[in-house]
Amino acid sequence: MPTQSDDKRQAAREVIDILQEISILLNTKLDRTELSLCVSLIENGVNPDALATVIKDLRREVELSSRSPNESSE
């Protein structure tokens, strides 16, 4: 059993490695944690399209919020 879980973890790491490379190729700007989170989300049945929208929205908002305080502060 422990070997099996080891194998699984090993496989999961490999998958994440591959996916990370792909994401680098595609310039998605996701780091490893985010990627694994996304993978788990999708594995749990989240629509990738929706997830992508969410991530994009989040990024935009973060960008906005980080920019506006800076502007206001100056």
Partner: peptide
């Protein structure tokens, strides 16, 4: 391991 390869790829695609 993955059962939703398409999903993750599609996600990556959309994020790209």
């Amino acid at each position: 391991v993955l059962s939703q390869k398409w999903g993750i790829l599609y996600l990556l695609y959309r994020l790209s």
